[in-house]
């Protein structure tokens, strides 16, 4: 095994071009587990810690440009206004120690369906900026996940920046685990209201081979909300709309039975989370973004 330590982004791309099998390592929270448990013996480890721009973020007009290696702790503490869904999701990642090292870039690179940030990225609207010595390309997050633990990266490419739409409305994230902390998702759900476009976007985690949006549920809800004039009136969403939305979200799942949970439970729980998080975000929207009930702890990272 060789340990490559590029000092800059250009060096990192050059190293990846020269050694396409090199495994990038930033926080190490996935890669080191695989090495410690003898699941993986890459010929090269490509350490990205010295590439400064990967650890930086910038808040723009429309988007947050999040360096791939920015640890979750920074997102939780610094970006919860701009990226509330991702901040909530980040707060469910592992433990404080893991949140100090783990990053969205790592989640995307691993492309595990159970990665906690995926539902929030899908719901917010995200493009992944990837690069190689051949050039740069932007991949919509929906197209980034190509299979279980597979993504759209070419062998010589690295993830540089995650461009996430700044929140223009309430966002929520929920995740089911069988423990109150430090737990891998049995299933997860993210939702973001986009009042400027009068749309709602969703993200489902760990309930299908890849993270995915519940597009039929989104379309149904967009139509129902428009038809009922809910965006203008700000009135309570009727239980029947919420129920149908939840059922459609459940229907979008394609889960498996495994040691963490049954397929049936996952489908059920995603529906519950969809109904609840829709309620929370809509309550917040109705009350002008202040939130009917403020939340502490995981909910608002107090």
């Amino acid at each position: 095994m060789d340990f490559l330590r590029p000092a800059s982004w250009e060096e990192a791309l050059a190293a990846k071009a020269e050694h396409p099998t090199a495994v990038p390592i930033a926080g190490g929270t996935d890669v080191m587990v695989e090495i410690n448990f003898d699941h993986r013996r890459p010929a090269y480890l490509l350490d990205l810690n010295r590439v400064a721009e990967l650890h930086a973020y910038e808040v723009g007009e429309e988007n947050v440009r999040l360096g791939a290696s920015v640890p979750y702790t920074r997102i939780i503490e610094d970006l919860r206004t701009e990226l509330p869904g991702l901040a909530l999701a980040g707060h469910t990642v592992g433990s404080p120690q893991i949140r100090n090292r783990g990053s969205v870039g790592g989640n995307l690179g691993a492309a595990s369906p159970a990665g906690d940030s995926h539902p929030a990225l899908l719901a917010a609207g995200t493009e992944i900026e990837v690069a190689s010595v051949r050039g740069t390309r932007f991949i919509p997050v929906e197209e980034f996940y190509t299979g279980v633990k597979r993504n759209a990266l070419e062998p010589d490419e690295l993830i540089k920046t995650v461009h996430i739409k700044k929140a223009s409305g309430p966002q929520q994230f929920s995740k089911v685990g069988t423990r109150n902390a430090m737990v891998i998702a049995v299933c997860a759900f993210g939702i973001a209201l986009h009042p400027e476009t009068r749309t709602v976007r969703t993200g489902i985690g760990s309930a299908a081979p890849t993270p995915l949006r519940a597009t039929a549920a989104e379309e149904f809800l967009d139509a129902a909300l428009a038809e009922g004039g809910f965006w203008e009136s700000g009135k309570t969403i009727t239980p029947s709309i919420a129920r149908q939305f939840a059922e459609l979200v459940s229907g979008a799942c394609n889960p498996i039975d495994d040691v963490r949970g049954s397929a049936r439970y996952r489908r059920h729980a995603v529906g519950i989370m969809a109904r609840r998080t829709l309620g929370w975000t809509w309550d917040e929207y109705r009350s002008g973004g202040r939130g009917a009930r403020s939340t502490e702890g995981g909910a608002q990272c107090a």
């Binding site: 929270t29 480890l45 350490d47 810690n49 120690q97 430090m182």
Partner: peptide, 24 residues
């Protein structure tokens, strides 16, 4: 990284030493 028994400060930040590659 599931138990915290190896927690150290790396440049002041608490991390699991088992998940930091020595070369980093």
């Amino acid at each position: 990284g599931e138990c915290g028994s190896c927690t150290v400060r790396l440049d002041g930040v608490p991390v699991c030493a088992c998940l930091v590659a020595a070369g980093q």
